[in-house]
């Protein structure tokens, strides 16, 4: 049984059908890179997996729990599925440490001392131990994004979703964030990452998924898909990003 099982999911905003029958299974430890043009539904797919968006039909199962069922406790689910956004979305009124401990003390009912210990651990993991006391606006974009990753990791998720987490960063800051991702991958974290970093996708992802107009158009081992695209849509997409 796969960790994530997505079956024939349809999702619309009013009349606009954004996901048109998406099916995707993700095994434990697998790293999936999702690529595709702007508007192809990549973010929407991630948001549906963590239950931020309802779907019209189809099923999404995570760890054998159906995400899109009314009786599902999304609160429980979200402790096991971390998501990191393009725009960091740290809580600006809280220090890096409190950003991380909030979910632990409030959702997991952990004692503050224990939560702080975990905060320190995940901040070490992203290489920012010395920034525990910093407020988000005192950090660079790359550092904020690493704190956002640490905030998700602190909940000890089984799956991490990354939505173009380097797209809002200056080029010189992208490397530090990708290194954190690469380390996570080595540690065996299951990940779905939407990215425009083709080099990173090629080296780190087990599988590459190309989305086009709300469908999974083509998928396979990262290198094979990138080197020998089968569909003209993927060829033209790769042509436009690789120049």
């Amino acid at each position: 049984m796969s960790l994530v099982e997505i079956e024939k999911v349809h999702k619309s905003y009013d009349k606009l059908e954004v996901l048109r029958g998406v099916s995707l299974n993700v095994d434990r430890g697998e790293i999936i890179a999702v690529i595709g043009r702007s508007g192809s539904g990549k973010s929407t797919l991630l948001r549906c997996i963590t239950g931020l968006e309802p779907v019209q039909s189809g099923t999404i199962r995570f760890d054998d729990v159906q995400v899109n069922a009314p009786e599902t406790d999304l609160r429980k689910l979200r402790q096991k599925v971390g998501i990191v956004f393009q725009s960091f979305n740290l809580f600006p009124h809280l220090t890096a440490e409190r950003n991380i401990t909030l979910g632990l003390t409030v959702v997991k009912k952990m004692a503050l001392a224990e939560a702080k210990e975990i905060a320190r651990k995940v901040m070490v993991q992203v290489g920012l131990e010395e920034k525990l006391g910093a407020y988000p606006d005192m950090l660079s974009g790359g550092q904020q994004q690493r704190v956002a990753i640490a905030r998700s990791l602190a909940m000890s998720p089984k799956l991490m979703l990354f939505d173009e987490i380097t797209s809002a960063l200056d080029p010189e800051l992208i490397g530090e964030v990708l290194r954190v991702l690469a380390k996570l991958a080595e540690d065996g974290m299951t990940m779905i990452l939407v990215t425009h970093e083709m080099g990173f996708a090629r080296n780190v992802a087990n599988r590459l998924v190309f989305m086009h107009e709300g469908e999974i158009w083509e998928q396979g081992p990262a290198r094979a898909v990138l080197d020998e695209p089968k569909t003209p849509e993927l060829k033209s997409f790769l042509g436009s990003v690789l120049v």
């Binding site: 429980k76 402790q79 599925v81 956004f85 998700s152």
Partner: peptide
């Protein structure tokens, strides 16, 4: 709105 999403995605309830 992103603050609602970020806080929802670490599992906080609406009141939290």
């Amino acid at each position: 709105k992103t603050q609602w999403e970020a806080s929802a995605s670490i599992g906080l309830s609406t009141l939290e």
